[in-house]
Nucleic acid binder design. Structure first.
Lengths: 156, 156
DNA sequence: GTCGATTGATTGAACTTTCAACTCAATGCT
DNA sequence: AGCATTGAGTTGAAAGTTCAATCAATCGAC
């Protein structure tokens, strides 16, 4: 678009940027590999099941869940249809307001998360937590907070 | 799978992890939005064109390019076919070894990158560089180096 | 030198995600 | 009450990605 003095990236900035994109591109892929191999589900599907499993009644509205997993409502709807077919959750209209749909985790779905969680957590430790010092973990929290804030709240 | 004392995440670890996944999931999406809007291409396609534009003769072997963009050869092959159809590059067998394919940027492709780059760089500054102090940028380089190292070299 | 194994890349089918159009329930306006 | 409007979710088709099979060129062992 407009080229108002583009201000190119210097070497340090370039290095910072490349390090981050590389992580941003490869981390989700690495999580998918572990979950697909050990549990037969994608990271996105895991997040759906995990989100429901951590909520009060093991149920959430579709739109709340979409925010939680950082995905569009349409993507979520397709994914939930697949998970429903597996018997891990079911959908029902929210009694409080029929415009909302509640996704509810079944006992089978709960079992699935309980099975998958330890392996997933181990992978998170291996890839992210273990390689960093406590100080770096703290730095990463603050850095992440700032970047996520710049990206802004979810719009999908 | 096996549950050898899962060692759950404590609150700080959980916060660190959530901050990072959120960035890893939303940053690529945010880059796609800007590039799609302003240049009509995805971030993946931009990386392909940018990778070629920065290489010595504006040409790279498919496998080298696949490493650079962190994607599978198959994914790259499909994407390059689309870009070739647009006239932004063409493919030719490597004279040095006929098993390799060289992707070569055309003048139109060069023009496309030159047009798209300033807007992309501005977005990178806005989302990542500007919100961080110089010290944090340095911290992020080291943190990224460690995580990327744990993820390992590319296997796709 | 030839034959089998290996390597780089492409292809097509299956699957997933996106996009836009649509449905349905609840609300607001008059 | 009657009827447009809004917001949540779904759907189907198009676009993109993955997976497995395949092809073509080179390397290596004999």
């Amino acid at each position: 678009m407009s080229a108002d003095e583009p201000r190119w990236l210097d070497d340090d900035e370039q290095a910072t940027w490349l390090a981050l994109v590389s992580t941003a591109v490869r981390l989700p892929a690495a999580l998918d590999v572990q979950l697909q191999r050990d549990a037969g589900i994608s990271h996105f599907e895991y997040q759906i099941l995990a989100g429901l499993s951590m909520s009060p009644e093991r149920k959430l509205r579709m739109s709340t869940l979409a925010d939680f997993v950082d995905g569009s409502l349409s993507r979520l709807s397709h994914a939930v249809k697949r998970l429903e077919k597996e018997g891990w959750l079911y959908r029902t209209a929210d009694p409080a307001d029929g415009r909302f749909t509640l996704a509810v985790l079944t006992d089978e779905g709960w079992g699935k998360v309980v099975d998958a969680a330890p392996g997933h957590v181990a992978e998170v430790r291996r890839l992210v937590l273990d390689p960093l010092t406590k100080a770096q973990q703290k730095q990463l929290r603050e850095i992440g907070r700032r970047i996520n804030n710049a990206i802004g709240p979810d719009s999908p």
